[in-house]
């Protein structure tokens, strides 16, 4: 059951446990519009992470007293499948999942024109099917695509990526082992075109200089994923366009 833990996370030639360079992302595969029932949906694989996101809404609010008079109510559920991690996780929401649902909602909220849909609800569901570190970031990246796929007007896509410190080196996009054994993890979400940070968390230990270096690296990683996000969106809608034209 137990994974073998490496003794060192970075070798002499600056290669990480999975062979990456410090500033290298894991391979990413994104697909938009993967579920027929949802108003919008998307799927991402980032390294061994496999994550689905679906958006329902704008729709009527249940229970009704939760509705807001001046904007849409945004709700978000981040949830890990019991089989997504090494040791089975109880399907009941943990305190970690409740906190992450909150910060993810707050990371996506600034991007959405909620004021256009008063007295409605927009529900975002993020299901972690397989986890390998950095699930909140990949979850944000994929959820923002599901929102766009649902046709909800947005100021920008939100994209997230973590940086951190591993064996004394600042690295990009930590995997599970690096997150667990590393010295610090700094997840960041941004709206790249607006130069705005929408999520920022950190645990571990960083000096101010290291922090500055890490946040710059994380934002750089976000910008690279942003390109892939836009390609994935285009891929779906260009395919539809071609079908229509045929």
């Amino acid at each position: 059951m137990n994974q073998e833990l490496p003794e060192r996370l970075i070798d002499e030639s600056m290669r990480r446990v999975d062979g990456r360079k410090p500033d290298e992302l894991r391979p990413i595969k994104i697909e938009v519009g993967v579920l027929s029932n949802a108003d919008g949906s998307a799927y991402i694989e980032q390294g061994r992470n496999k994550i689905l996101a679906a958006v329902y809404g704008p729709k009527e609010v249940h229970p009704r007293h939760l509705s807001l008079p001046d904007r849409a109510l945004l709700r978000c559920r981040y949830h890990m499948a019991p089989f997504s991690v090494e040791e089975r996780k109880s399907p009941a929401p943990s305190r970690r999942e409740i906190e992450l649902s909150k910060v993810i909602r707050e990371a996506l909220e600034p991007a959405i024109f909620l004021e256009r849909y008063p007295r409605t609800a927009i529900d975002i569901f993020i299901e972690i099917l397989q986890a390998d570190g950095g699930t909140r970031c990949a979850g944000i990246t994929v959820a923002s695509l599901a929102l766009a796929d649902a046709g909800i007007p947005m100021r920008d896509l939100v994209v997230a990526c973590a940086a951190g410190k591993v064996d004394g080196t600042i690295v990009l996009d930590l995997n599970d082992v690096e997150d667990k054994l590393g010295e610090a993890d700094l997840p960041v979400a941004v709206m790249p075109s607006l130069n705005a940070v929408t999520l920022l968390q950190m645990d571990g230990l960083l000096t101010l200089e290291e922090f500055e270096q890490a946040i710059n690296l994380a934002i750089d990683g976000c910008k690279r994923i942003y390109k892939l996000q836009k390609e994935a969106l285009k891929a779906k809608y260009l395919a539809i366009k071609e079908e229509v034209e045929e």
Binding site: L74, V103, P110, L194, V197, T198, L200, Q201, M202, G204
Partner: peptide
């Protein structure tokens, strides 16, 4: 720094 948490549905610049 040993922990960071941003809260609220707004944005900040780097």
């Amino acid at each position: 720094i040993c922990a960071i948490q941003k809260g609220g549905g707004g944005t900040l610049t780097k």
